[in-house]
């Protein structure tokens, strides 16, 4: 199966480290990612609040482009992943709506027959490529590193997807097999608030404080994320959280693909580690046995 890469808008700017590391991980594992040429924004949750047919048509364009090439979409951003999957689901569930979206796409000279599946890289890595192959290819052990594996909300919800909606374990299994210790992390599917950080800042800060607190009190060295929204909220606003809640968090927030790529032998810059705001290097290099 061919993997069609859909980075999404965030991965072009604030989510750059995610983009870099996803590409590296797949390359190191010997899988080719083909970027969908001329992809557009999925519409995100903001678009869903306006007219629904417009929102669905926009994301259906991405699906239509992918269908033309043939293959499965890999969408690393949880929001893109949710929206594109939702579009697939809604079109199937509501034939009337599907008809309208088809008409809209037709106006742009495109067609979509509903055959493209949308996948998250975590799903593909754990369930297609497999933990066995990944551990076989790993050249560094993560032994001694304590990770808080943060899945966030839109990766595992609303529909039952590739993992449990309340207690997902795929990331835990992956990193445990690479030698890391998964700390007890009750906030693993708590919501980071997404755009609330901008629209209702007070609320956003509290939600992220709670997540950081759970990680810290369980002695995590790092929080691993799967979504650019969670990443920027937890990372970029840590100093503001510290000010507001009188805490002293200095928790590195790292995309799971960054740490995975490093374990697979990539250099720090190949996984964009230097692009993170809170450095993890000393913890990894210092505490981990390299082979």
């Amino acid at each position: 199966m061919k993997y069609l890469y859909y980075p999404g808008c965030s991965l072009e700017s604030t989510g750059k480290p995610y983009d870099v590391s996803v590409r590296t991980v797949f390359k190191l594992l010997g899988f080719e990612l083909e970027e969908i040429a001329d992809w557009n924004c999925c519409g995100a949750t903001a678009y869903m609040s306006v007219k629904e047919t417009v929102a669905l048509s926009i994301s259906a364009r991405v699906l239509a482009l992918a269908e033309k090439i043939g293959g499965e979409i890999i969408a690393p951003c949880s929001s893109c992943y949710t929206i594109l999957s939702k579009t697939n689901r809604d079109l199937k569930a509501n034939p009337e709506l599907e008809e309208l979206v088809k008409e809209a796409l037709d106006a742009g000279g495109l067609t979509y027959n509903g055959t493209v599946s949308v996948r998250h890289p975590l799903d593909v890595l754990v369930n297609d490529i497999g933990i066995e192959l990944i551990t076989a290819k790993a050249v560094r052990s993560l032994h001694g590193l304590k990770t808080a594996n943060y899945y966030g909300c839109q990766l595992v919800r609303p529909e039952k997807g590739f993992d449990d909606r309340e207690f997902p374990t795929s990331m835990d299994n992956l990193f445990a097999s690479l030698g890391a210790e998964n700390v007890y992390f009750p906030a693993k599917v708590r919501c980071c608030g997404g755009m609330l950080m901008t629209t209702f800042t007070e609320v956003g800060l509290k939600l992220n404080h709670d997540i950081l607190q759970r990680a810290k009190e369980n002695a995590a060295d790092v929080i691993l994320t799967t979504c650019p929204m969670c990443h920027i909220n937890l990372e970029g606003y840590q100093s503001e959280i510290n000010k507001k809640f009188h805490t002293n968090f200095n928790m590195p927030i790292v995309y799971f693909t960054q740490l995975l790529g490093w374990a697979l032998g990539a250099g720090m810059e190949e996984v964009g580690m230097e692009l993170n705001l809170i450095p993890i290097e000393h913890r990894v290099v210092g505490g981990v046995v390299t082979r």
């Binding site: 557009n40 007219k51 047919t53 417009v54 669905l56 048509s57 926009i58 364009r61 309208l100 979206v101 008409e103 809209a104 796409l105 037709d106 106006a107 742009g108 000279g109 495109l110």
Partner: peptide
């Protein structure tokens, strides 16, 4: 242009 015609169509629906 493609996006624009898709959006225009969807908006008129």
């Amino acid at each position: 242009d493609q996006i624009k015609s898709i959006v225009a169509k969807a908006e008129s629906q």
